[in-house]
Design a binder for these strands. Structure first.
Lengths: 210, 210
DNA sequence: TTAAAATGTGACGGATTGCTCATATTTTGA
DNA sequence: TCAAAATATGAGCAATCCGTCACATTTTAA
């Protein structure tokens, strides 16, 4: 009856490390966090466990993070930034290359993001849905769609945003499934994803040349 | 140092209810479990919370389930059975219908499964990855692929398993993303998924008619 | 009717988790 | 050099959570 449901755990970091030593501590904490997510998952992911694994004291941990959710948030933000950078790089480096190559590079960026550390990715993915990060999530998706969309628009597709949205979604689906099955052959996966994307794009409307 | 990582929580139900009363209790527990997953997620999902919400005592709960994981497992199994039934029905009812209609029906079954109760679906999806259910997961995927594959084979595709695998994966990706965005317009989603599937299938090899 | 089986109850003990705080150590900057 | 700022420590408390167990109630079936 009471609002037990709302658990507004703080998300933002407490204070930024100012010295090299504390910087190392924060890094160690984040690495330990990723390690636990990778090896044991979200359930045994506790502040005490993270601190211990990081070789730091709980006190130190709480100096920089107000709780486990803040650690997860930081992990998510870093991973996202990495992927977005890769996608932007791929898009920009293939501006004047053949379309097929541009598509390949974008797919490769997405695959790298998910296939690298799939356990951690999956855990963070679910964690994200329980965190108040929806605004950021939306912004990220928008940024990704914007990049892909620009690439499509430059090649004459008339509804680049929709195409980008759907291409990203179906690519994600295939990549996730592959990760689930423990597929490690990126080239085979790339090949099949390319076929799906290409097939889909053939049905997408193009700007009519009058 | 010790193997704290392995937490082999029991998964199988303890005993089956024999009377109508206990049957109702088990149902209430499962409904309460779904409710908590839907409203609060995996973190506040505790045995005590489930029992309280179900209007049963913890003692009763532990009479039928050895722990929270067993409840999640049962939830997953029931949901899966429902979806598989729907897919089989769709496949069988469209055996002698136009191919486009068969594809639509299969897509609709998948969409219904995910768009109905997306919060619960997401929670169960992550939970599944932490449970020793991989064998069952694989069997389910095989069963689904088998149905879709049979449909494809009957229409002359020469690599129906691969096509089915990829179509299921990309469909899942689009549906999941839609669920994430809170899309509720099933018709729009169906339309876009159909375009993706159709586009992909156009690149799939067909049996050559000699 | 009645004994056995099935079912339901919830207080509670042991274990875990989140997190603080008083205190110790290191680094900085003047 | 040395006081202030930054950083690190970990015992320990409050708040859960899990899960059992002794006992009460209901249902079954002979």
């Amino acid at each position: 009856m009471s609002d037990k449901s709302a658990k507004p755990h703080p998300i933002e970091p407490r204070k930024a490390p100012r010295q090299a030593r504390s910087n190392a501590t924060v890094d160690a904490i984040l690495e330990a966090a990723a390690h636990i997510l990778r090896e044991e998952g979200l359930v045994p992911f506790t502040t005490n466990a993270v601190a211990q694994r990081a070789g730091a004291s709980i006190g130190s941990l709480y100096q920089y993070f107000p709780g486990k959710d803040a650690i997860l948030t930081e992990l998510i933000r870093r991973k996202r930034q990495t992927m977005l950078d890769a996608i932007r790089l791929a898009a920009r480096e293939t501006r004047s290359r053949p379309f097929a190559e541009a598509v390949d590079r974008l797919i490769a960026a997405g695959i790298a993001h998910q296939l690298d550390d799939p356990q951690v990715s999956r855990a963070l993915e679910y964690a994200e849905s329980t965190l108040p990060l929806h605004t950021e999530t939306h912004e990220l998706k928008m940024a990704i769609v914007a990049e892909v969309s620009a690439t499509f628009a430059a090649r004459g597709f008339s509804e680049p945003e929709i195409a980008a949205h759907d291409v990203v979604a179906l690519t994600r689906g295939m990549i996730d499934t592959a990760g689930l099955y423990g597929e490690t052959d990126a080239s085979s996966l790339t090949d099949r994803v390319r076929r799906a994307v290409t097939g889909y794009l053939k049905t997408a409307p193009k700007v009519s040349r009058t």
